[in-house]
Design a protein around this nucleic acid. Structure first.
Lengths: 341, 341
DNA sequence: TTGAAAGCGCTAACAA
DNA sequence: TTGTTAGCGCTTTCAA
């Protein structure tokens, strides 16, 4: 059986308070006493029981991270960054998968399992603006993503509209006029799909290029397979285009594969642009030009913001809105105007 | 402030024992009493404090999973599968990243943070056979991977030698004789690299093909970039080969990219075989023939085994050794003998 | 069928 | 500088 404060106290011949003081680096302890206690701790191999400490202090030292699926590279990379940032702050991370399912997301928000943590970083996918009130929860919460805005919780996200607009402008500047899009969601206004589509349209409008629904590919989940399927449909329909904007990298990579199978050269015949800057984007053939939406910053900021809320629970200022910077990561699948000339 | 058992008891006009009975589905409760209690629970929005329950019961309902890095697809997919299996058993998963660093791995094994969990699923990368004694820990532990064998803890792993041998035999059967290998680790005997290299050599020996060190590429970390670099070195050295066996999929994908840049056709000039069957293997161009080492089974089995150890801590039988089945996932980068003929 | 009370291991207010 | 003690919220024996 693991030893307790009492065991250590008995062995060292002091009270448990003294042992507790030593463990918690309380300053005013006589060196001899400290030595005795440390000796006893070493002998017994004592480690504090964190569960008991949690019960007493009301803090667990753990935070929860809820994402749709870890097998989606974007969320795996997000989780990696969040865990790293949390570890630097001495926190441990409990990872939950929701499958991007609205009901599971709503359940999670009121799950007693969260009692094991001090707060939650939540990346919803199934919930939408209509569920905004469900984010009013009795624990520290930081929301990521583009499903819900102006909610009662802190929100860390990226400049979807601006970044998609910049990506489209980049393609236009490099001489493309017929820019197909893969990954649109029918009728969506906010959400990553809706916002990025808006940025795309803004860029077209600004350049005086008419919006053509016949080169917009709709998909549900942003998997590679769906990017491939969507591109196949566009090709089968005889659509003509000289560029493709995949609303994320996996869609773009799936689309690029189908283009090449169909004998289109990338980027000569069709330029391909992604969004996310996944690790994979560097190693596809050709490598993928994409939007780097600042994910490491998002992860660090989410953790930092959550910690502030945990440490100042009563500090009921306005919910914070935090936006990451983005940049275009130029690679082979879509050379810039400068490179093209 | 969150409500407690006492609040519920007071509101319902019963004792806390009765409330506790209701919550824990104790059978002998008068329906009227149960109704009163449930009413009170609903009114107060009571949820049990899991920390207190943990302190009392000695179980937290959480397990820890330690992997080198979530941004490596193999471990992201492993984590996804472990979390899913744990969730089915009502457990939550705390994910730690060790960076594959031996010291961090050793620290983790004695970290007090593990006190927050009931047991650990551990995938070491930096530790080796010489550290086998460090796996003798005072909590339930299941070890994954190929770094340490015959240790004091349960071990779930794959048939590395057999699977690598089968992969090599597959290439030989399809008519390849000069099979380069990417990802070898100098002097390693066990570990994924050592074992898979052994399988490769066994297949060559059985077919009477001499082992040629000049077509063996050495790398440290099994990243895409290293697969690419290693292949570039082989090409620069003027090595001749008609197939490449990447010791994992990311190495194989990196190598495949370099081959294509160098104008080699895959699979016509060079067949490419991977190992892991990552999701990406389906979507590369060409799609990657690879070994499916049974990862979902490994994840489920690890969770199941850990739960058994948690539930029967004193059941000190021999440590278990559990091996997943494998199969060759045939795709375009290396057609089978049947397909080739 | 329900209640009273002890105690899981720890922290911290108060006392000495 | 160190000791005593009262809980944190829950489960669980024992009694009623």
């Amino acid at each position: 059986m693991a030893s307790t404060l009492h065991d250590v106290a008995r062995l060292a011949g002091v009270s448990i308070k003294t042992v507790s003081n030593v463990i918690n680096d309380y300053p005013h302890i006589r060196p001899a006493t400290r030595a005795k206690v440390e000796q006893a701790i070493g002998e017994l191999g004592y480690t504090p029981n964190l569960t008991a400490r949690s019960l007493r202090s009301g803090r667990t030292g753990a935070i929860a991270l809820a994402v749709p699926e870890l097998s989606l590279s974007y969320f795996a990379e997000l989780a990696a960054a969040v865990i790293e940032a949390a570890e630097e702050a001495g926190l441990v991370v409990l990872v939950e998968q929701t499958g991007g399912d609205r009901d599971r997301e709503l359940d999670l928000l009121r799950s007693p399992r969260l009692k094991l943590t001090d707060g939650l970083i939540f990346s919803p996918l199934g919930m939408g603006q209509e569920d905004v009130d469900r984010l009013d929860v009795p624990y520290p919460l930081v929301v990521l993503g583009e499903r819900i805005f102006d909610g009662p919780a802190d929100h860390v996200t990226m400049r979807n509209v601006d970044a998609a607009r910049a990506a489209t402008e980049y393609l236009i500047a490099s001489g493309r006029r017929r820019i197909a899009l893969v990954g649109a969601h029918e009728g969506e206004v906010i959400g990553s799909a809706g916002l990025r589509l808006r940025g795309y349209r803004e860029a077209l409008d600004a350049a005086g290029i008419p919006f053509d629904p016949s080169i917009i590919g709709h998909t549900t989940l942003w998997h590679r397979a769906n990017g491939a399927r969507s591109m196949r449909e566009l090709l089968d329909a005889g659509a003509e285009f000289d560029a493709v904007f995949g609303l994320n990298d996996t869609l773009a990579l799936g689309a690029m594969r189908v283009l090449q199978e169909a004998g289109r050269r990338v980027p000569e015949d069709v330029a391909v642009m992604g969004f996310d800057d996944l690790d994979e984007a560097r190693y596809s053939i050709p490598s993928l030009t994409t939007v780097d939406p600042g994910q490491p910053w998002i992860a660090r900021t989410a953790v930092r913001t959550l910690i502030e809320r945990i440490e100042h629970p009563d500090d009921s200022g306005e919910p914070r809105r935090l936006l990451a910077d983005f940049r275009i990561a130029e690679r082979e699948s879509a050379p810039s105007a400068a490179a093209a000339s």
